[in-house]
């Protein structure tokens, strides 16, 4: 549901670009999703296929760059991957428990390939 809204917004943005720049169709859409954006890759791909029907981006390929969630240690400034279970509890480098999630929450269209 959420991803369908996002996909609809992406299609709207691409149609705007088509009107401004006069290209025929979009073949590839390159997206960057922040680690804290809550975007699910598979849901977004499915939603994009549905939302794109009949648009200038019908059948276009979605390339989603989404960095993994990491934890930043506030003591040693080291970064470590965050696990699904919310771990690790302490910094693997210095042992501090002052770990803070690090990630962006945005979703950007980085570039498109068009004909």
């Amino acid at each position: 549901m959420h991803e369908l809204g996002l996909a609809t917004e992406i299609i709207r943005l691409l149609e705007d670009q088509k009107r401004q720049r006069g290209f025929l169709r979009v073949n590839i859409v390159r997206l960057r999703a922040g680690a804290l954006s809550g975007v699910d890759r598979h849901a977004l791909e499915l939603a994009f296929t549905i939302a794109g029907e009949g648009s200038c981006a019908a059948g276009a390929r979605l390339e989603l760059d989404q960095p993994a969630l990491t934890l930043l240690c506030r003591q040693c400034r080291g970064e470590t991957p965050a696990t699904q279970a919310g771990g690790p509890q302490t910094c693997p480098a210095c042992g501090s428990s002052e770990l803070v999630l690090r990630g962006e929450d945005g979703l950007d269209v980085v570039s498109i390939e068009v004909d």
Binding site: L6, E9, I10, R12, L13, Q17, R21, F23, N27, I28, L31, G106, L107, D108, V109, V110, S111, I112, E113, V114, D115
Partner: peptide, 15 residues
């Protein structure tokens, strides 16, 4: 095929 850099937020209209 031509690549067009956009750097546009999907949330820009809401923003």
């Amino acid at each position: 095929m031509t690549e067009i850099p956009l750097q546009k937020s999907v949330f820009q209209r809401n923003q």
